[in-house]
């Protein structure tokens, strides 16, 4: 096996809007790739083309040696690809009609065909790991954003995917709840699972990323080790972006 995730020449348009303009990416098993980039640069769209929530117009997606051609793919290929991936959403997207426990069990029961009792047992274990042992029987709307997102992470983890896609997992949270979710994600990263994380949390990226990718305008501008990209980026666009998000006041002055 060469790479856990391989994206080749991904193009995606919405109507006349060419959003992704040929993205290539190779990710090894166990790598934690953090994607940075300004809003609207196509980060979410890129993650969604990996699990075909949006099918790319061109290119191919491979996960764990299973390759799907974006132009011509069958439903069953898409299902198989999705079963190798899991996603953590910006707005959590927990199943509103199910308790936290049922949310985590759902994939095991419907997709992996676990017996209910077995699914419940492992789901409770994983919920305990993310600190939600006491919240199993609550509905999503009864929990804080941080708790919901940790449940979202448990729902993704339980499926034992080859790669987990995180789309700005903390950007919808109140500031005081960001820490608990980042800590959960750090713990997940330490298990050695392959992850792609879109985030603006630079300190987090420094700590857990094995690689940082900077995207803008639908292309990868620059990528490398976190200490290279985050401390001494070569590209002026990367430098500008980092200045802006690490020092919001400077950005205001620059645009004023």
């Amino acid at each position: 096996m060469a790479n856990m995730v391989e994206l080749k020449n991904i193009h995606k348009s919405f109507g006349d809007n060419h959003i992704l303009k040929g993205v290539d990416m190779s990710i090894k098993k166990g790598e934690v790739v953090v994607i940075l980039g300004p809003s609207g640069s196509g980060k979410t769209t890129l993650l969604r083309t990996i699990n075909f929530l949006d099918a790319a117009d061109e290119g191919s997606v491979s996960v764990h040696d299973f390759t799907v051609d974006c132009k011509k793919h069958s439903k069953s290929q898409v299902i198989e690809l999705r079963r190798k991936t899991a996603m953590v959403f910006q707005n959590y997207n927990l199943f509103q009609n199910k308790t936290i426990l049922e949310n985590v069990m759902e994939g095991l029961v419907t997709v992996k065909k676990f017996k209910k009792s077995d699914a419940e047992k492992v789901s409770r274990e994983i919920l305990a790991k993310v600190g939600l042992a006491e919240r199993c029987d609550f509905y999503p709307s009864q929990l804080s954003g941080g708790q919901q997102q940790r449940a979202g992470i448990a729902r993704a983890l339980i499926l034992d995917p080859d790669v987990i896609l995180f789309d700005e997992p903390t950007s919808a949270l109140d500031p005081e709840l960001v820490g608990e979710v980042l800590n959960t994600i750090k713990a997940v990263a330490q298990t050695g699972i392959t992850m792609i994380v879109v985030t603006h949390e630079i300190a987090f990226a420094k700590e857990v990323a094995s690689r940082v990718v900077f995207m803008e305008g639908g292309v990868v501008v620059e990528e490398g080790k976190p200490e290279e990209i985050l401390v001494a980026p070569k590209e002026p666009r990367t430098q500008q972006f980092l200045r802006r998000i690490t020092n919001p006041n400077a950005a205001e002055e620059a645009t004023a």
Partner: peptide, 27 residues
């Protein structure tokens, strides 16, 4: 029903009909 609900169902690997029966329809 929020379209994120279907997307979440797809993201855990459910097929369209299963997502409808277990997630979309009950809501």
């Amino acid at each position: 029903v929020d379209k994120g609900q279907r997307e979440a169902a797809f993201s855990v690997g459910m097929k369209g009909f299963t997502a409808f029966r277990r997630i979309i329809f009950p809501q």
